[in-house]
Nucleic acid binder design. Structure first.
Length: 459
RNA sequence: GUCCCGUUCGUCUAGUCAGGCCUAGGACACAGGGUUUUCAUCCCUGCAACAGGGGUUCGAAUCCCCUACGGGACGCCA
């Protein structure tokens, strides 16, 4: 028995859709699972829309997700070329076979595939016209996910466009035959196209590959109806990169879109996914995109991220938001990151969470303003604590705590009475890292100054 | 409109193929409580689903049929 060969056939026209990424992942998983080959084939027959940049971007995204390929545009292989734009000779050769078999004809400058069967014309309500149809024999695929699916193709279709470029269905089938593809895992949107493909396999007297049609990824119902489009939030992998999501989390999330492991474990590394992946466990029904789940997974991975990787990603996120540059004190930065480590839920939120460590221009949280500051006696709390902090000679966590404790003893109020107000004064919000270490790190001069600034704002 | 595919908590899903172990399990989200003298984490509890109707059967989420609803295809896009 020959070994498994699967392919991923993206068209490099811009950004990578989440469904495209999932197709890549599932094909990759199946290849690695079976010890087969994962082939990358570039669908660049539409010349105007393809650029080198888009291709580079595509390869970058695949690598970011942790996917590698055995044959492809940059790695080569025995079945090349791996750009469809360079496979013209092969397409011509296969077109000749169809010509010789009398299965093609020309119309309006394009080459059509001729179906076999009785011809008749009929009014078609979709095309709103009288069109020619063919009474063909139904064709059946045994889909690895859906079982037997039978359908009849009833209209001739274009093989080569009038501008000379070969069309999708034709190149798709020719490439799968000539590259020895054994399994085709693709989106359900191709299920209806499969009858066209099967007709071509028949005409070429070739054995069709095994098909598996994955469910569509649908919009969050709160957002709208239908399949997720590239305009929807969360639809593009680039968006996750820009938002500093972890690739492990993204991979985990897209794997769970339409697939789930038998043992019910949800947080899975790509290796663990690989151990559990089975085509038959892929869901039939469309999967709805849930941004909250994506965020949660990202959060889980952040918690277990090794410290050096955490620091790298954190620095990137801070640099991207221009809170820090290369002049930043690396020891101070390290301490800040250490302090925020267990508090933040995403790198995306880190800049907002920690801005006040790096700049006096930090935003004031409206809710905190209402809840903490616009409250009777709030400014009195600052008036009480400010001189005591000012007077401290030893600016250590315990010394700071003592200052609060003393005040607490004298007034009978808990230290809790001052904490939120001071936190608000120095950070503009009511949540954040551990309070006392935060003050210590910020430094006496800055803490006292911000308290006074806050007080000055009322007068 | 025609054809194809689908339908379990708000969402992702387990269970369906081999009907009884399902008073339907987990996760996210949401609500309430607890731990934490801050903040977050964390822990506990709760909410919440077999689309509807007919069969078959001692017994159906599970098998069959119909209806409804959702999705996809119907391009000289891929």
């Amino acid at each position: 028995m020959s070994s498994v060969r699967v392919r991923f056939e993206p068209s490099p026209t811009g950004s990578v859709h989440i469904g495209t990424a999932r197709a890549a992942l599932f094909n990759w998983l199946y290849a690695r699972k079976t010890g087969g080959s994962f082939i990358l084939r570039i669908a660049d027959t539409d010349k105007e829309r393809n650029t080198q940049d888009a291709l580079d971007e595509l390869l970058r995204v695949l690598r970011w997700l942790g996917l590698d390929w055995d044959e492809g545009p940059d790695t080569g292989g025995d079945f090349g070329p791996y750009f469809q734009s360079q496979r013209g000779d092969i397409y011509n050769e296969y077109l000749k076979k169809l010509e010789d078999a009398g299965r093609v004809y020309e119309k309006d400058g394009a080459v059509f595939f001729k179906l076999e069967g009785e011809r008749y014309t009929e009014y078609d309500s979709y095309h709103k016209a009288e069109i020619e149809k063919v009474r063909t024999e139904p064709v059946t695929i045994d889909d690895l996910i859906r079982g037997k699916v039978t359908r009849r193709e009833e209209r001739d279709f274009v093989l080569v466009r009038s501008n000379g470029d070969p069309g999708f269905h034709f190149v798709n089938v020719v490439d799968d035959i000539s590259m020895g593809i054994t399994h085709v895992l693709r989106g359900e949107d191709h299920l209806s196209n499969t009858s066209k493909h099967l007709e071509l396999y028949k005409a070429f007297k070739a054995t069709p590959p095994n098909f598996a049609h994955m469910p569509m990824i649908l919009k969050d119902p709160k957002v709208g109806k239908g399949k997720m489009s590239k305009r929807d939030k969360g639809a593009l992998i680039e968006e996750y990169q820009q938002r500093h999501f972890l690739p492990e989390a993204v991979v985990n999330f897209i794997a769970l879109l339409g697939w789930s492991p038998k043992d019910g474990k949800e947080v899975l590394s790509i290796k663990e996914i690989l151990e559990r992946f089975e085509i038959k466990d892929i869901q039939k029904a469309g999967a709805r995109f849930d941004e909250k789940k994506m965020s949660h997974l990202n959060f889980v991975y952040m918690k277990i991220l090794p410290i050096n990787e955490y620091e790298n990603s954190a620095k990137k996120a801070l640099a991207a938001s221009e809170l820090i540059d290369e002049n930043v004190d690396s020891e101070y930065l390290r301490a800040v990151l250490e302090l925020c480590r267990d508090k933040i839920d995403s790198f995306e939120n880190l800049p907002g969470f920690s801005a006040y460590f790096f700049s006096d221009e930090f935003p004031v949280n409206e809710k905190a303003l209402k809840k903490v500051w616009n409250r009777k006696g709030a400014s009195d709390r600052l008036v009480e604590i400010a001189p005591r902090l000012q007077a401290l000679e030893d600016w250590s966590e315990s010394a700071i705590e003592n200052a609060f404790l003393q005040l607490s003893n004298e007034t009978g109020d808990k230290p809790f009475a001052w904490y939120p107000v001071v936190r608000f004064a120095v950070s503009g919000t009511n949540s954040g890292p551990d309070f006392l270490p935060m003050l210590e790190l910020l430094g006496k001069e800055l803490v006292v100054r911000r308290i006074n600034d806050r007080l000055a704002s009322v007068n």
